[in-house]
Simulated scan of single mutants.
Amino acid sequence: MPHTFYDFFAGGGMAGFGLGSDWRCLFANDIDPKKAASYRANHDGGKELLLKDVSQVTVDELPGSPDLVWASFPCQDLSLAGNGAGLAGKRSGMFKPFWKLMRSLHAGGRGPRIIALENVYGAITSNGGRDFATLCAAFSGLGYRFGAVVVDAVHFLPQSRPRFFMVGIRGDLTIPEGHTADGPCALWHPPALVEGCNLLSRTAASRWRWWNLPTPPARNTNLASLIEDKPTGVKWHTKAETKYLLDMMTDHNRKKVDAAKQCKGRVVGTIYRRTRADANGVKRQRAEVRFDQIAGCLRTPAGGSSRQTIMLVDGKKVRSRLLSTREAASLMGLPDTYVLPERYNDAYKLAGDGVAAPVVRHLAEAIFEPILKRNRLALVA
């Protein structure tokens, strides 16, 4: 029998791709019509998807009692590049009506066995850690044993994408031995997360658990292996456009390009445009390149964020272009069969707002599935 889940703030349904075929989605929700169209295109029509503001969703619209609730709630107000509003912000504040639904499910005897939240790293530190404490208090208030990890997609994909995950287990369930540790692990629990635990109430601290995730196997893909020879939806820049990018680089970044020219064969790098202050304090737009075979973190092309650019160096020849939408999807761990929106910005936004599918799979294998299996066996016994 498949495990069941709800997918809140579902976007294009990337969490479902990560969970895999042993999971069945009972309910999904998003407010963005374009993302909803992508969800339906990639999930057999998506009959389970409700296109509606989460604050307007009622508990009567939620079917059954799910094994897992996954919620990638909006990150804009928690992001280090955001406005600092945190959970009080209009967008990240959508956590509150979502959690109201979780409380209602519990009150009706349908509390999810597992609840997993996903957000940016800034969720740990926003508002001096008080937003993190608020999330912890929410889990503790419903009697969950809970903990958090920071997982970088770079362990699985050639993309630098650290994300915060908080996972809570319903109080009546057994957590199998070995799935928690006595203390933090540097790979999954950075200092900011350890420090954040100091803000927890005594009750919340008593329910905190250090999740013991296995170290993933060495990644076997690099950026160059994902780059399309004939890119979809984008064209190579003209020589003048490439020169413009090179002229935007500092000496430090130009030296990276010069070093790439000395390598045998083609070298693939990525560029983001960022505003930096020069030696005189004047802010200028700069092109910053990396050639470490890892893409920078995909971001949405809204709010001033630039879109990621590919730079291909082959001897003295240097070419550049925008990252293609298919390449962006690959950097999120989505299959080549994933149906993308036709418009470039819609497809790029879909990827930049999503969750890396292999990270979800790692959490499922390490936490969700072993706990559900252990407790189902207990029921049979």
Results as ranks from 00 to 15, higher is better:
residue 182 D to R: 06
residue 184 P to V: 02
residue 184 P to Q: 04
residue 184 P to M: 00
residue 184 P to C: 04
residue 185 C to I: 03
residue 185 C to E: 03
residue 186 A to P: 04
residue 186 A to S: 08
residue 186 A to Y: 03
residue 186 A to N: 07
residue 187 L to P: 00
residue 187 L to N: 01
residue 187 L to M: 04
residue 188 W to G: 01
residue 189 H to N: 01
residue 189 H to E: 02
residue 189 H to S: 01
residue 190 P to D: 01
residue 190 P to Q: 00
residue 190 P to W: 01
residue 191 P to E: 01
residue 191 P to T: 02
residue 191 P to R: 03
residue 192 A to W: 03
residue 192 A to H: 00
residue 192 A to P: 02
residue 193 L to F: 05
residue 194 V to Y: 00
residue 194 V to A: 04
residue 194 V to K: 01
residue 194 V to S: 02
residue 194 V to C: 01
residue 196 G to D: 05
residue 198 N to P: 06
residue 199 L to T: 11
residue 199 L to R: 12
residue 199 L to K: 13
residue 200 L to S: 01
residue 200 L to G: 02
residue 200 L to N: 00
residue 201 S to T: 15
residue 201 S to I: 10
residue 201 S to D: 15
residue 201 S to W: 07
residue 201 S to E: 14
residue 202 R to T: 04
residue 202 R to C: 05
residue 202 R to G: 05
residue 203 T to P: 05
residue 203 T to V: 12
residue 203 T to W: 06
residue 204 A to D: 06
residue 204 A to W: 02
residue 204 A to M: 08
residue 206 S to T: 05
residue 206 S to Q: 10
residue 207 R to P: 01
residue 207 R to I: 03
residue 207 R to S: 07
residue 209 R to L: 10
residue 209 R to H: 08
residue 210 W to T: 06
residue 211 W to S: 14
residue 211 W to G: 11
residue 212 N to G: 10
residue 212 N to S: 15
residue 212 N to E: 13
residue 212 N to Y: 11
residue 213 L to T: 07
residue 213 L to N: 03
residue 214 P to A: 09
residue 214 P to R: 12
residue 214 P to E: 10
residue 214 P to S: 13
residue 215 T to D: 08
residue 215 T to Y: 11
residue 215 T to R: 15
residue 216 P to E: 06
residue 216 P to H: 05
residue 217 P to C: 05
residue 217 P to D: 09
residue 217 P to S: 09
residue 217 P to V: 06
residue 218 A to S: 14
residue 219 R to F: 08
residue 219 R to D: 11
residue 219 R to I: 09
residue 220 N to E: 14
residue 221 T to F: 09
residue 222 N to P: 07
residue 223 L to V: 04
residue 224 A to P: 08
residue 225 S to F: 02
residue 226 L to M: 14
residue 226 L to N: 07
residue 227 I to K: 10
residue 227 I to C: 15
residue 227 I to G: 12
residue 227 I to L: 15
residue 228 E to L: 13
residue 228 E to S: 11
residue 228 E to A: 14
residue 228 E to N: 11
residue 229 D to C: 12
residue 230 K to F: 15
residue 231 P to S: 09
residue 231 P to T: 07
residue 231 P to Y: 08
residue 231 P to G: 10
residue 232 T to E: 13
residue 232 T to N: 13
residue 232 T to A: 14
residue 233 G to A: 14
residue 234 V to Y: 15
residue 234 V to S: 11
residue 235 K to F: 12
residue 235 K to W: 13
residue 235 K to L: 14
